[in-house]
Simulated assay, not measured.
Amino acid sequence: MLAVIKTGGKQYIIKPGDLLKVEKIEGEVGDIVEINEVLLVKTDKEIKIGTPLVENAKVRASIVEQGKAPKVIVFKKKPKKGYKRKKGHRQLYTTIEIKEIIV
């Protein structure tokens, strides 16, 4: 079984048992979350393509980790003008494990 889900503005191809790093989802480690934005579901017999979402399809996943990505430095400079700006950013993420795909 295979599915395409949308979360955090991005699309992911998943199957049960996958570990996935997505944008932050509220919850504690060990919580079960349901993702309702399922765009495509492929089973052994058929493929269901949503317009834009597959009706009554859900993905259940458990939260494995809440964390922060490594720091990214944003540096802006305009030559000969004395303008410099340095800023850092750490993106929050959630690691989830896909438990089941419900059609």
Rank of each mutant, 00 (worst) to 15 (best):
M1Q: 14
L2C: 02
L2W: 12
L2P: 00
A3T: 01
A3G: 08
V4G: 02
V4K: 12
I5Y: 05
T7G: 06
G8W: 08
G9S: 12
K10Y: 04
K10F: 01
K10R: 15
Q11L: 04
Q11N: 14
I13F: 09
I13Q: 15
K15R: 15
K15D: 03
D18M: 15
L19K: 15
L20A: 11
L20K: 04
V22C: 05
V22I: 15
K24P: 01
E26V: 10
G27I: 08
G27H: 07
E28I: 03
E28F: 06
V29A: 07
V29N: 07
I32E: 15
V33D: 10
V33G: 05
E34W: 03
E34Y: 12
I35E: 06
N36K: 15
N36R: 14
E37L: 04
V38E: 04
V38F: 05
L39H: 06
E46P: 00
I47A: 12
K48T: 10
I49M: 12
T51A: 08
T51I: 02
P52A: 11
P52I: 10
P52H: 06
P52C: 06
V54A: 05
E55H: 07
E55K: 15
N56H: 10
A57I: 11
A57H: 01
K58L: 13
K58V: 10
V59C: 08
V59G: 03
A61Y: 03
A61H: 00
S62L: 05
I63E: 06
V64T: 04
E65G: 03
Q66I: 09
Q66Y: 10
K68G: 01
A69R: 05
K71V: 13
V72Y: 01
V72E: 14
I73G: 01
V74D: 14
F75R: 11
F75E: 10
K76D: 13
K76I: 08
K77N: 11
K77W: 06
K77I: 06
K78A: 10
P79H: 11
K80Y: 02
K81P: 02
G82W: 04
G82N: 09
G82T: 13
Y83K: 14
Y83G: 03
Y83Q: 13
K84D: 02
K84F: 06
K87G: 02
K87V: 12
G88C: 09
H89C: 08
H89S: 06
H89I: 09
R90Y: 09
Q91H: 10
Q91G: 02
Q91F: 07
Q91R: 13
L92I: 03
L92F: 11
T94G: 01
I96F: 02
I96G: 00
K99N: 14
E100Y: 11
E100H: 09
I102D: 06
I102P: 05
V103K: 09
